[in-house]
Amino acid sequence: MAEASLTLEEQGEAARAFLSGLFDAFGYEATFDVELRDAETVEVRAHGDNLGLLVGPRGATLAAVQDLTRTFVQRQSEARTDRVLVDIAGYREKRTAALQRFTTGIVEEVVASGEERALEPMGAADRKVVHDTVNSLAGARTRSEGVEPRRYIVIEPVR
C-alpha cells in the first residue's frame, strides 16, 4: 500500500536509490545527482562511461527506465510522480537543446511566411519544451491539437 506522500526531495532520493540498484544490476559504474528543477519537478541524472545501452535507440530505453522509476516512486508515495525526470549520460539535455533549436527555426519560418505550421505528434515533456521555447520568442504562439498519444502542437503567427 502507498505510504504517506513524499516531498519532492524524498521522491528524488527514492528515484536515485532505485536507479542506483538498477545500474548495479547492469554492472555499470555511475554517479547520480538529484536536482529540484522547479517547485514541482525533480530530475535525477546518471553520469558514467558507456551508458548508451541504457539510453537506447532514440531514447526508448531511457523512457522505459523513467517509467519504471516513476512506478517505483509511486509505490511509496500517494503524490503524483509525473514530475520525476530521469536523464542518463546527458541525453535528455542534448535532446532538449536540439528541440529548442528546431523550434526556433520553425518560429522564424512562421513569422516570415505568416502561415501556421503543425508539428509531428510528441510526448508531453517535449511539447512543454516547444511551448516554452515559442513563448520566449516574439511573433508566434502555440496551440495543441489532437488526442494523446497523437497530440501535436501548431505554431501560429501573432499579428
Binding site: 538498477l22 545501452l53 530505453t61 523512457a63 522505459a64 517509467d67 519504471l68
Partner: peptide, 10 residues
C-alpha cells in the same frame, strides 16, 4: 512493456 525494454538492453 517498460520491463521488457530494459531487460532487452540488459
Amino acid at each position: 512493456q517498460a520491463i521488457r525494454t530494459v531487460v532487452a538492453a540488459a
